[in-house]
């Protein structure tokens, strides 16, 4: 949008770009993104993890929930590449399958949150007034409540946690931040001339929101959504770690690190907790790199 403005102000550069086929803002952003080495390495690592998640069934050597009570806490061997946990389940298979759960939860919890955030943020930012204050007060209320306490309470009340319920809980408790960001973006766009123009030619609210607001807010949304996915993965791991996440025996990285609560395991069985720990670290790090890269790419002021 600002780039467009530039074109109008500076006919020479516009003419130049016309000769070499002018690039859309998205294309420009992509260019900047590809130049960002850290972001690209993030994409590669994440791609690798996604690959593992997709082909988990092929890669795993054992059934991830199959236990063997006579083979617990075993060390690295040709049979169990990363040993077994305290119930005799194969760590390698659990690690591989864990990527699936972690990414699924990360992605869908993020998606759900974005949907809620975009809807509420748009309404609030576009209409303002009473709707705005109502939504913002609810947001404030949610932000006041300590996140972890809220989630723990909800989970403690529910009898059974499935992945779907878990995603819903997380999404329903993390939407306020994104809502505020989108509202702020809308507020800054609201006073722009092209919105005024759209309104003056009688475009409907829905059309204005979808055609004029959202495309211009897509940068902040994508950046925050990406970073949020990393947060979601950490939340899942942390909750599973303290026993309030996806229940055993479902393999998740957080469930696997729980093994390290025992100092004996921590000292002797590094293979039980180090790989899932590293997996979380690299996944979250790569997503954050991508998020950072996207932020720089979408922000024309950088560089």
């Amino acid at each position: 949008m600002q780039i467009n403005t530039n074109h109008q102000i500076d006919p020479i550069s516009a003419a130049q770009q016309k000769t070499e086929k002018s690039l859309s803002p998205t294309q420009l952003a992509m260019r900047r993104f590809i130049k960002n080495k850290l972001a690209i390495s993030g994409v590669i690592i994440l791609g690798f993890i996604v690959f593992i998640a997709v082909f988990a069934d092929v890669l795993a050597t054992h059934e991830p929930t199959a236990y063997d009570m006579y083979n617990i806490e075993s060390k690295v061997s040709s049979e169990n590449w990363l040993g077994t946990d305290s119930s005799g389940r194969d760590n390698f298979s659990r690690l591989v399958h864990g990527s699936r759960i972690s990414l699924t939860i990360g992605f869908f919890a993020m998606l759900f949150t974005v949907v809620i955030g975009v809807i509420l943020g748009s309404l609030s930012g576009y209409y303002g007034g009473k709707i705005d204050s109502l939504i913002m007060r609810i947001t404030d209320l949610m932000l006041i409540l300590p996140f972890l306490l809220l989630v723990l309470t909800i989970i403690a009340i529910l009898e059974k946690i499935s992945i779907l319920i878990f995603i819903t809980i997380i999404a329903l408790t993390t939407w306020p931040n994104l809502t505020r960001i989108i509202r702020a973006t809308f507020l800054s766009l609201r006073e722009k001339e092209f919105i005024l123009g759209a309104k003056s030619v009688g475009a409907s609210d829905i059309r204005i929101i979808f055609k004029h607001f959202l495309p211009n807010a897509v940068g902040p949304i994508i950046v925050n959504a990406t970073l949020m996915m990393a947060t979601m993965i950490i939340i899942e791991s942390a909750l599973s770690f303290i026993g309030f996440g996806i229940p055993q025996p479902t393999p998740t990285w957080g469930n696997m690190i729980t093994e390290a609560t025992n100092l004996r395991m921590l000292e002797n069985n590094w293979e039980a907790w180090l790989p899932p720990g590293l997996a979380i670290l690299f996944t979250v790090l790569s997503i954050n790199f991508i998020g950072d890269g996207l932020r720089d790419a979408f922000d024309p002021k950088s560089n």
């Binding site: 770690f241 690190i257 025992n262 670290l281 790090l285």
Partner: peptide, 16 residues
């Protein structure tokens, strides 16, 4: 991220 991993394991020690 490194701190995160270590905090997790450190909390774990006390848990038992």
């Amino acid at each position: 991220a490194i701190m995160f991993v270590f905090t997790l394991t450190a909390c774990g020690g006390n848990n038992e």
